[in-house]
Design a protein around this nucleic acid. Structure first.
Lengths: 141, 141
DNA sequence: GTGTTACATTAGATTTAGTCCAAATAGTCT
DNA sequence: AGACTATTTGGACTAAATCTAATGTAACAC
C-alpha cells in the first residue's frame, strides 16, 4: 500500500494522517501476519516517530471504528489486527494462535426466520485447526 | 440436560464429576445465554457447593479441551462459554457484546488449494450486527 | 481398611491486555 | 496570529485470566 493510499483512506474516514497513525497503518499494510496491539506498538517504536502505548491503542480503536482495520478476537490470547484489503476469511491455529487469511468465497446468509429482528452487519467465517507450521507436530497443548 | 447425562459426558471425557465441575456444566446447560467466566463463577457461588475462581477457570479450560464446551472470544470483552449441544452458528451484538445462537446450516468448505497444508478441525460462522434488544436504538458506540 | 497415586480445589499473588485521565502538543481554519 | 479541535502522552488503573504451592479427595491395588 502506497504512502498516498494510506493518507487517502485516513482522510476519507475523517481521520488526520498523524505520523503515529500513519505508522500503524503502514505496519499493518506491510505485514502479512496479523499482529497483536503489543507487536504493533513495538514495531512502531523501533523507528521514529515513537508512539505511546495509549496512542497505539487509541489509533487501533479509531481505525477499527472507521472500518479500515479489522480486529480478530482469539480465545485466551490478545486480539489481532488486520488491514482491510481484499476480503478474506480467517484461519486460527489451535496451537500457536496465529491468524492467517483464507481466500474469500461467498457464504450463504442465514434464513430471515433464523435472524429474527436482529440487524445483520457482516458475516465472518473462521476456520480452526493447525497452521502449516504446527500441523506436523504432535499436539502438545 | 439431566443430571445423569452430565455425569455421563464428563466421564466419557475422562473427567471426574466433581461437585464444582458438575455445577459449571449444569449452569451452562440450563442457561440459554452465553455467560462469561465471571458470570459462571458467580452463579455457581450463589448455591452450594462453592467454587473458587481458579477452579472455575480450570474447569472451563478442561471442559473446552474435552470438547464439551465452546469458548467464544469477543473483541474487547470477556470470553463467553457455551455448552455444545445442537450445532449452531453465533451472532455477536456490536453494541452489547451478547452472543446468541443462530440455527445451524451447512457452509461450504474452502478449496483444498486455499487450505494448503493446514489441518482443518472446524469451521465457525460468526454474524455481527445488532441483537433484537439493541437493534431499534441509534448506535452510540 | 490402608497406602499410593493421580486428579482437584483453594486463596491469593501475579501477569497480561487494555482503558482512563488530565495535561501538553500539534494541526486546521479564518 | 488566534481560536479551536484533534491527537498524543505517561502513568495510574482495571479487568480477565493464569500461576503457585499447599491441601484435599477419590479410585484402585493390595
Amino acid at each position: 500500500m502506497a504512502v498516498a493510499a494510506i493518507k487517502q483512506s485516513l482522510e476519507n474516514s475523517g481521520l488526520r494522517c498523524t505520523p503515529q497513525r500513519y505508522a500503524v497503518m503502514a505496519f499493518l499494510a506491510a505485514s502479512h501476519r496479523h499482529p497483536t496491539a503489543v507487536e504493533i506498538f513495538e514495531a512502531v517504536n523501533r523507528v521514529d516517530p515513537r508512539s505511546s502505548r495509549a496512542t497505539t491503542y487509541n489509533n487501533l480503536r479509531d481505525l477499527v471504528q472507521a472500518g479500515l482495520v479489522r480486529e480478530v478476537a482469539v480465545e485466551g490470547r490478545a486480539a489481532r489486527f488486520d488491514i482491510k484489503g481484499l476480503r478474506h476469511h480467517h484461519f486460527i491455529c489451535d496451537h500457536c494462535g496465529n491468524v492467517e487469511d483464507i481466500e474469500w468465497y461467498n457464504i450463504p446468509r442465514p434464513a430471515a426466520r433464523a435472524l429474527g429482528k436482529r440487524v445483520l452487519r457482516e458475516c465472518e467465517l473462521i476456520f480452526r485447526g493447525r497452521c502449516t507450521k504446527c500441523a506436523p507436530r504432535k499436539a502438545s497443548r
